[in-house]
């Protein structure tokens, strides 16, 4: 494959890939690639494939194939992977925050922003390929709601990192252990949600029933257990913070409460992903 020249606007979108891949649609061609982009290094492209997805009215096209819309399943799963990757950055992010290594913290913040942008791109692509005329085995609204919940994980992580970096937030030493535990458990919830969404292609294959449906229900059950734990941990972290708050600058405390709340939202969103999957099963 020869050299590909992208317009600057497209190139910037490609740069937003982070460490995974992105599909760029130019005209009727879909460029899929996976590449590694690290800061201050040339991008390493692992794999680039070009797929002709033009459905234009050119002659010699076959109309039976035109009745099959682009399946939303693989893009939905790609989107969830990216959102989970974003959530995974949160643990190193807070570890560095506690150590107050602000350079590294802002580097991690940059990665999170890039990943969140990638998730947004995928979200737009999925929405674009689901016009109302599509006849699908699941209601369009349920699928879009699932997509929204997935995307909300990436958004929340970005908001958290923005708050922390912007305020150079200091996490009280006495709070650290339970705080990191709390972050970890919320990431676990996101991981379980991701694992559940990975079963989406299998669910489509089996027609949302039988052994595969039972398996997904089991995963969602496990997800609920984790989410319950995050709720308990959140209460515990807030309790500890409450004991410390009189010795801390009041505004810092207000934002610390806000960050804790946002971290808890990751678990809530993961749980909501589980609910949406269950809805898909029940139709």
């Amino acid at each position: 494959m020869g050299r590909l020249l992208f317009e600057p606007s497209i190139l910037s979108r490609c740069m937003a890939v982070g460490s995974s891949g992105l599909a760029v649609r130019i005209g009727g061609l879909l460029f899929r690639h996976s590449c590694t982009i690290r800061k201050n290094q040339p991008a390493i492209m692992h794999d680039l494939s070009v797929q002709d997805i033009s459905t234009g009215d050119s002659s010699l096209t076959n109309y039976i194939t035109k009745i099959f819309g682009d399946s939303p399943v693989a893009p939905m799963q790609d989107h969830m992977e990216v959102c989970f990757k974003t959530a995974k950055e949160l643990l190193p992010f807070f570890e560095k925050t506690i150590e107050q290594k602000w350079d590294e913290v802002s580097e991690l913040r940059d990665r999170i922003v890039l990943l969140e942008q990638e998730a947004d791109e995928l979200k737009k692509q999925i929405r674009g390929q689901l016009p109302k005329s599509m006849f699908m085995p699941v209601p369009r609204e349920d699928l879009l709601n699932l997509l929204w919940a997935q995307d909300q994980i990436a958004n929340t992580v970005r908001d958290i990192s923005g708050l922390v970096v912007g305020r150079k937030m200091i996490i009280p030493e006495k709070l650290c252990t339970s705080f990191i535990e709390f972050v970890q458990r919320n990431c676990d919830a996101a991981k379980k949600a991701c694992k559940s969404v990975r079963e989406l292609d299998e669910l489509y294959t089996t027609g949302f029933r039988g052994a595969e449906a039972a398996f997904v229900e089991k995963l969602v059950g496990e997800l609920d257990v984790i989410e319950n734990e995050t709720d308990e941990m959140q209460a515990k972290v807030r309790e500890e913070l409450f004991k410390l708050e009189k010795d801390l600058p009041p505004i810092d405390v207000i934002f610390l409460y806000r960050v804790i709340e946002l971290i808890g939202e990751i678990g809530d969103m993961a749980e909501r992903i589980g609910r949406r999957l269950e809805l898909l099963l029940s139709h």
């Binding site: 109309y63 039976i64 099959f68 085995p137």
Partner: peptide, 25 residues
């Protein structure tokens, strides 16, 4: 063609196909 499209829709009704463009149908 029509018979085949009808058959494809039948599979779709059984929740077998991820997306069918009804405009084209």
């Amino acid at each position: 063609t029509h018979t085949l499209v009808g058959a494809v829709l039948g599979v779709g009704m059984a929740r077998g196909i991820s997306a069918i463009d009804l405009n084209v149908v």
